[in-house]
Each structure stands twice: as C-alpha cells, then as structure tokens.
Nucleic acid binder design. Structure first.
Lengths: 342, 342
DNA sequence: TTTAGCACTCGCTAGAGTTGAGTGCTAACA
DNA sequence: TGTTAGCACTCAACTCTAGCGAGTGCTAAA
C-alpha cells in the first residue's frame, strides 16, 4: 500500500482542499494549490490511478473528485501532520472557558460549549463512572425522621452519596453500628460490587433488627446497582446545520436521532476505546448509519479512571485540528474541575 | 370580537383541518369537510371576512388560507374542545412509562421520551428549584482531610448537599460549632437567601478562626448562589424533522439553537407562568424567533413547589391533545417518582 | 513521462410553456 | 338580503429545453 510520493502529495492536497471547501476538487484546482509545474492532464492521470485504488470518488463523471472514507483513513494514519494548538488558539479556548465554574455539570457544559464553538461540531463529554473506584470510607447520617444520607468516599476522595429511607425508630447510633458492620467487608472494594457484597454482610448481622437491616441493605444494593455512572453532556447540535452536507433533512434526522440515544452513543465510544481508536470515519461507524466522523480522546482523572471528550461532525472535518483541540483539552481538564467533582 | 356563528364554525373547521394536513385550505375543502349545504362561493365570502379580521392568511393569492397566530389563539381560548385522554391513550402513555425507574434523572428522561413519543413533539421536563423551600436543618460532616459534606434539609425533607473544602486542621467539632453558629440565623429561611445570610453571620463569629470561617462562608455563598436548581431534561428533537414546516434548515437552526440554550428556555417557561399562560403560540413567543408553539403544565410536588412539563412543536400542533396529555401526566407524575426525588 | 488538444459528459441554471388549485368579482336567483 | 353559478385571473409547481461550464478521458505529439 505504499504509493508513489507524488500520488500521496496529490491525495493530501486534495483532501485538505476538500475539507476546507466541501466541493469536489478538479485537476486544475490541484495544479493551482500545489503547482510544482505539473499540468492538469498529469494530475488527471494520477487521480484516475487514485480512484482505481479506491481513494477517490466522483459524484458524477463530469465533476471533480472527493476523498473516500478509505482516503480519510489513510490521511489520518499516514499523511496528516498534527500541529499542537498555537498559543493564539489555546487563548481562544481558554477565553471560552473563562467565567464562573459551577457544579460538575456546569463545568462539563462549559467545556462542551467551548469545544463545540472552536470546532464548529457537536461536542460530547463523558464523566467516568466512579463505580470502578475503591471505597475508602462509608458514613451514614440521619437527616430526618425516616431518611439517612449514606456517604461513600473513594480512594481518590471523590464523594458519592445517596438518600436511604430508614425506619423512624432507627437512630444515629444504630446507623453507626451498621456502618461498623459494613466497613470491614466493604472498604477497599470496588463501588460497583458494593451492592452484592452488602447483601452478604447480612449473614453475620445482629439478629434482633434483621428485617430492618434487610430493608436498608436492599436499598444500598439497588442504589449502587442502578447508578449508571457515566454521565453524558452534549452541545452544539445546531452547529451541524451550517454544513451543506447536512442541508438534507434525512441525513440530519439520522444524526440528531443518534445524538439523542445516549446508550448508543456510550456504546460507540466504548467500542472505540476497546479498539484503541481515536478517530472513526464515516462508514467505519457501525452503530449508526448517520454519515459523520467521530474523534475522541480520554482525559485522566487519576491513574485508574478517565473520562472521554468527543467531537462529532461531518466526514470532511479538520481531523488534525480536532486532535489538537482534544489533546489540549484532555490535558488541561483534570485540574479544571478537580475541585468540583464529587 | 363576537363573530357570527357560521364564521366561527368555518374557522374551527379550517384550523382543525390545517392542523391535520399542514396544507393551505381552500373553500371547496371546507364545503366537503363541513357541508351544511353551503357552496364554495359562500365560504369564500366568509373567508374573505375572516381574513379581513386577521384570522386567516394567504401564502399566495392563488392558494388556500392558513390560520394566523391570532386565529390559533382564538381557537385555543374559545373554540377548542378539550377532551381528556381516552383509556386507550392513557394506556399507551403508561406502557411507554413502564420499565425500571432509576434515579430522578432516569425517570425524567423516561417521562420526556414518553411525552415526545405520544405527541410527536419535543418534550421538556423541569424539576423545580428547591431553593424556594425553607431550611429545616443543616449538618456538616468531615469526610476527608480537607473536604466536608454540607447537608441541607428542607421543610419538605428534601435533601440537598454539597462538598466544601476545609482546612486540614478543621475537625468535626469545629464543623459542629459552625453549624450551631449558623443555625439560629439560617433555619426557616429560604434556600436561595442562604448565601447572603451566611455571609452576614460572620459578623458575630469567633475571632480566632475568622479567616478560615470566611473561606467556608464564601464557599457556602458561592454554592448556594450558583445552584441553578432547576434541572432540565429534553427529548425528541429529531421528531421535529418529520414536519414539512421544518424542512427548511434555517428554521430548524433557530429551533435547535433555542433548545440548546437552557437559560433561555427556563426564562421562557418562567415568563409563561408569570403570565399564567399554558400555551404560547408562534410569534407570541418573544424569547426566540423560532416559529414554534409551546404548551406547558405544572405538576405539584407539594403545596409550595412544582415542576413543569412542556411540549414544543410546530404552530399547527393539536393543542387539545397536548393539553390532555400534559394534564394526565402532571396529575400522575408526583407519585411516580416521589421515592426518587431528593 | 509529460502535456496539449479535443470531444464528451452532465449537473446546473434560466426561461418558456402548461397545469391546476384557488381566488375575487359580478350578476342572477330565491 | 343572502346565496350561488360563472368566469376571468393569479401564481406556485412542474416539465421541457437549451446553453453554460467545470471537469473528464483519451490520443497523439513533444
């Protein structure tokens, strides 16, 4: 699959020009953008070759060429130069992120909006499920007659809490006892195992309040099990409407439909990282038939946990810039909302 | 503004027919749908009258008539019959809502999806800001070396908490003292006033730890102030793409843009309830120039607090059905997720 | 191997003609 | 006075045609 250098240069020029304009590119245009004293005829010959290899397509016989998905893949893997963000660009990004940082969700929203603004694509952020973290401490506080707050602290000091219903006559002392009962069996364990483990604890429990304990345990199990964990924030859908390739409503419907199905989106990104892919181009995406490309990047939360940032846009997106932006963001993100995440 | 009965019948027929088809309605069509032995010519005369009064519009001189916003308003206020959901319809709605109910957000998502599916419009749910509730109890628990959990309990026993950063050497005792200091001044007050009030408390504080206290207060102020409270869940955007009126991308962009700006949406609904409106028709909406109608309904959470359900769709929506669906939902919603809300 | 030249393709646009749904107006009728 | 039949008129939508132009593939010459 090693092409002659000239073919590659032509391919690269063509792709980059097409990314900019969205118009099929003709041989004359190539000679203008990348002269080197070759005539359109020569370029035409080379383009015919590239088409035979499956890198180029012609919408109609009398039109210029557009890159195929295969071409984008080759471009992304071999031809593209990744240039980090210039100071000017990162300034813009930072400016977009200035202003008050609120709760986690607010921060995420802001990050997503900034990403979307600078890339002109849909941006997605996922906060990791904290359920893969290990439990460091557990507390229960009686807050009203029949409600207690269960507080879970992970090793990374991220705090997760949930309200438990308790019997009116259960007091703080009894809650403390319950915690002490649970601690030796749960501390150090992963959060997503907590539910099942909690149930087992019951075996060795004090017998006089067995029924009540059981109720509470059941709730812990439920809450822990149910907690989906991964949270998804999305922004910039309307940006897509500026691209001529999405002036067709049918196409748009596929995309917006995809964006609405969180489960499918999550699956998509999960799949990408199983295959260690950062970029999915057009038809490579098997989850939806929407014609889009997806660029994703993980950001570290700590050594075991990461979240994901993603960009979804037209296939002719500026992959190099997307990678640079995502790279910059994922490196700087951890510090940005460390204080707000819990 | 009392029109002759015949005019009204024609107007009503025309609106309802237009809601179904989306096509301009001609005089012949009216005679077919609502005969009563009148000829098209007579209908034409009446329609000319209705147009003069501002109830009808003609896209072109040789087209049929379409209702104006004013006509919809009149229809909604005076002509429309509101029929409650038939058992069959409510069954469908209930079926859409079956399945596991998870956390609040999950429930909301499910409700919104069901609403969207049955109405073929965008559905929106808002959970109320609890900030209008009064504080009943406040606790602070040291959870890690430098983090404490502040727990606020409202009169309605709804619990809201937030993580505070504290100095390493601040212990549980000191936190308790802080709570005792705050309690007499904050209990019984509205949550959204808390921030400012907390700052005032400082005046009478113990002097030796003043700086640290100030930091903590500042955080409380921030967190309370910032706490947007109202949470917004939205679904069914892709449904809009099926309507011919939104095949125009520019129009679509306005709408999707509006849906993305949570603040503006919240403002819109807030405005509606200040004016005690349930329905906003087309250009009556001053927040966005997107051509849509909005139907909203409050659901009670308790006697002081309510959330909002809303439907956003094309101006020629079936207002009667929308009201019926929203009505049914808002009445049944409270029980549905009582257990999950906190 | 490159290139100039040429015939060819075909999407796009503009203009002309046709159709058809629907109107307003007028005059006649009950 | 209200209703209606009749008719001329309007105009969006569709079809058809022709011309343009960007771009191609192929051939033959440099």
């Amino acid at each position: 699959m090693d092409l002659k250098e000239r073919k590659l240069k032509i391919l690269k020029t063509l792709i980059e020009y097409y990314i900019q304009t969205g118009q099929p590119v003709g041989s004359r245009t190539i000679t203008e953008k990348y002269g080197l004293g070759l005539s359109p005829a020569t370029i035409r010959n080379e383009m015919a070759g590239l088409e035979e290899l499956g890198f180029l397509e012609q919408p109609h016989i009398s039109a210029g060429r557009i890159p195929s998905d295969k071409a984008y893949r080759y471009y992304v893997d071999k031809l593209m130069e990744i240039t980090p963000l210039t100071p000017k660009e990162s300034d813009i990004l930072n400016a977009l992120l200035s202003g008050h940082m609120d709760e986690t969700e607010g921060v995420m929203k802001q990050i997503v909006n900034a990403l979307s603004d600078i890339t002109n694509c849909v941006a997605i952020a996922m906060v990791p499920k904290i359920s893969s973290m290990n439990l460091k401490d557990i507390k229960m506080i009686k807050v009203t007659d029949n409600k207690a707050l269960m507080i879970l602290v992970t090793e990374k000091e991220i705090i997760k809490d949930t309200v438990l219903r308790i019997p009116d006559d259960m007091d703080q002392y009894e809650l403390d006892m319950l915690c002490e009962l649970l601690k030796p069996r749960l501390l150090g364990k992963r959060l997503d195992n907590l539910g099942l483990l909690a149930k087992e604890c019951l075996a060795g429990a004090l017998s006089n309040r067995r029924d009540i304990l059981q109720q509470v345990m059941e709730q812990i199990r439920e809450r822990m099990f149910v907690q989906k964990g991964t949270q998804l924030v999305l922004g910039g859908t309307s940006k897509l409407l500026d691209y001529p390739e999405y002036s067709d409503v049918n196409n748009l419907k596929l995309i917006i439909g995809m964006l609405e199905e969180e489960e499918r989106l999550l699956g998509l990104f999960r799949g990408m990282f199983q295959d260690e892919l950062k970029i999915v181009i057009g038809s490579e995406n098997k989850i939806s038939s929407a014609r889009v490309s997806i660029v994703a990047s993980n950001y570290d939360l700590d050594e075991d946990n990461y979240g994901t940032l993603g960009i979804i846009g037209p296939v002719r997106m500026d992959y190099s810039k997307m990678l640079a932006v995502l790279d910059y963001m994922s490196k700087n993100i951890a510090g940005m909302f460390e204080n707000f995440f819990r």
